[in-house]
Amino acid sequence: MSFTLATWNINSVRLREPIVCKLLAEEGPDVLCLQECKSPVDKIPTEAFRELGYGHMVARGQKGYNGVAILSKLPIEDVGDKDFASLGHARHVAGRLENGVTIHNFYVPAGGDKPDREVNEKFGQKLDYLTEMRDWFHSDRPEKAILVGDLNIAPREDDVWSHKQLLKIVSHTPVEVDHLHDVMDAGKWADVTRNDIPKGKLYSWWSYRARDWDVADKGRRLDHIWATPDIQNAAHSSRVLRAARGWEKPSDHAPVFATFDL
């Protein structure tokens, strides 16, 4: 069985329903994982997605912010969620496909503006969230699993437009990168995207503040697709759909894709 999966921080699924439908119609991934849906589950516009062949969904939502959803052409079973760091936020949901693959969809806290938990509570919450992810994967080692989502960290030097200038900017600080690596090590996760695209600058997010994001190209790779060792070699054809950042009323994130032959 071959299936293609995409992950996209949509920054309001109701506001951006038209471009979600555009992606589904034009790219046709078998599974689309969305973050920052900003919607209660019962308000997600499932009818439009169903008409495009996406008749299955597992989701967690809340009004106005956060929220994660997995849309699927394939039957998918809801296998729960975790409230890491006890924030009470809809930031994780997991679904299992009929082939036994579990998909974890995450929206890790952004962490605020200052990379110092003593003066910025949100940064502390981000680190605590990652620590609890690490502990969970260490105690319950995942198998035949894929982890996707907006993890709000660009770990490699070539995952940001300027390593030197972003070292003290939230999303690329050494302490965040170390925490992310700890999560990866605990679950033995492989970075599917970078396995397929090992060299060169690669971004999935460009700020709304940039007057011309495409020309300035001051991006960061905040969105990830990982896989456990037992299926990582089945992954291929990773790509970032950069063009989606330029669609009408876009998210500031672009979708990331990978295909798995299982």
Rank of each mutant, 00 (worst) to 15 (best):
F3Y: 14
F3H: 05
T4A: 10
A6V: 01
W8P: 11
S12T: 12
R14S: 09
E17P: 00
I19S: 11
V20D: 10
V20W: 00
E27Q: 13
E27D: 11
P29S: 10
D30R: 06
D30M: 08
D30F: 06
L32W: 09
L34Q: 01
L34E: 08
Q35V: 06
Q35G: 01
Q35C: 07
E36I: 14
C37F: 05
D42L: 09
I44L: 14
P45Y: 13
A48L: 10
F49S: 03
R50G: 08
H56D: 05
G61A: 08
Q62W: 02
G67R: 02
G67I: 02
A69M: 10
S72Y: 01
S72M: 03
P75C: 07
P75E: 08
I76P: 00
E77N: 07
V79A: 06
G80A: 08
D81G: 06
F84M: 05
F84V: 03
A85D: 15
L87P: 14
L87E: 12
G88I: 15
A90D: 11
R96I: 11
L97C: 11
L97G: 11
N99H: 09
G100D: 06
T102W: 02
H104G: 09
N105L: 12
Y107E: 13
P109E: 03
P109M: 06
A110F: 04
A110V: 04
A110G: 08
G111K: 09
G112I: 12
G112R: 04
D113R: 14
D116L: 05
R117E: 15
V119F: 01
V119L: 01
V119Y: 00
N120M: 09
N120P: 03
Y129L: 03
L130E: 03
T131Y: 04
E132I: 00
D135N: 12
W136V: 10
F137D: 04
F137A: 11
F137W: 13
H138L: 12
H138P: 00
H138F: 04
S139N: 13
R141F: 13
E143Y: 03
I146H: 04
I146Q: 06
L147D: 02
V148H: 02
G149N: 08
D150P: 04
L151A: 09
I153Q: 01
I153L: 02
A154L: 05
A154S: 12
D158L: 08
D158R: 00
W161I: 00
S162Q: 11
H163V: 02
K164N: 12
K164G: 07
Q165N: 14
K168E: 13
V170L: 09
S171A: 12
E176G: 01
H181F: 11
H181W: 06
A186M: 07
K188I: 00
D191G: 11
V192K: 03
G200S: 11
G200W: 04
K201A: 08
K201S: 05
Y203C: 03
W205C: 12
S207M: 08
A210N: 10
D212V: 10
A216Q: 15
A216E: 15
K218N: 07
G219A: 09
D223P: 10
D223G: 05
H224A: 05
I225C: 03
I225L: 08
I225Y: 04
W226Q: 02
T228W: 00
N233M: 06
H236F: 07
S238Y: 09
R242D: 13
A243M: 02
R245A: 13
R245Q: 11
E248Q: 14
P250H: 07
F257M: 13
A258K: 02
F260C: 10
D261S: 15
D261V: 02
D261G: 11
L262F: 14
